[in-house]
Nucleic acid binder design. Sequence first.
DNA 1: TTCTATACTCACCTAAAAGTAAGTGCCTTG
DNA 2: CAAGGCACTTACTTTTAGGTGAGTATAGAA
Lengths: 124, 124
Amino acid sequence: MATSVRRGPYACGIDAGIDVVAGKWKVLILWELQQHGIRRFGELRRGLPGVSEKMLIQHLREMEEDDLIHREVFREVPPRVEYSLTEHGSSLNEALRPLGAWGGQRRKRLDAQGAGGAGGVGPR
Amino acid sequence: MATSVRRGPYACGIDAGIDVVAGKWKVLILWELQQHGIRRFGELRRGLPGVSEKMLIQHLREMEEDDLIHREVFREVPPRVEYSLTEHGSSLNEALRPLGAWGGQRRKRLDAQGAGGAGGVGPR
DNA sequence: TTCTATACTCACCTAAAAGTAAGTGCCTTG
DNA sequence: CAAGGCACTTACTTTTAGGTGAGTATAGAA
């Protein structure tokens, strides 16, 4: 049960794509690794304000299993573990770009609405 | 609390994009509407095997609020309600395409692995 | 008259995701 | 010698998403 497929049978590709990034912090992890190339566990934790160690490691393990990220352990003391994107992780990031752009547009729309619109929410 | 923003503050665009399609059936609804242009509630329900009426309508309402879909009510008996994509819904669908393609590749990889690999899971 | 279909709404329940907090082994720093 | 940082692990609780099944008004079909 440890190895292999996990999740779906999928109805279609989008399904499979979304499934792999479902998880509160996964796209942020992807982004963080894309930006920095290589990050240690503690760096990731500090780079994702609000994430708990449990969730971070859980997501990292799932992403490793999905072959999105690479995990390299250095047998030193204090321990050092470095995470980086695999080829698939990198291409996933590329594939997410249009969605990110769309989301950016949406954010702008919402901001404009919130700022000039029927007051109430205020900008954040 | 009824109207306006819902969800986030978002860390970035991808966040906002994913948030809007988070929900078990949302991309499938998007897809169904893209394929057919216009669909009635019951047609959608039948087109999405396994969806419950509650979830379907809940997702439809959220997507309407997010301005992804348009809802048109015909005051007839029996009631008729037609759903279609808005411009934003349509562009979202476009933005999801690369992710869908990526997911398709992944599916193929998993299938190949499952079929030829170190036996155990078998094809689904 | 009863049954079916339409597009829902409502109350309740389960299961999965996420959060909290404590503990682990080991070495460096003060 | 105590404290702290590293990368985790474990047990437990809370929150949220999703599922189930019933009820609603109306009209046409059987």
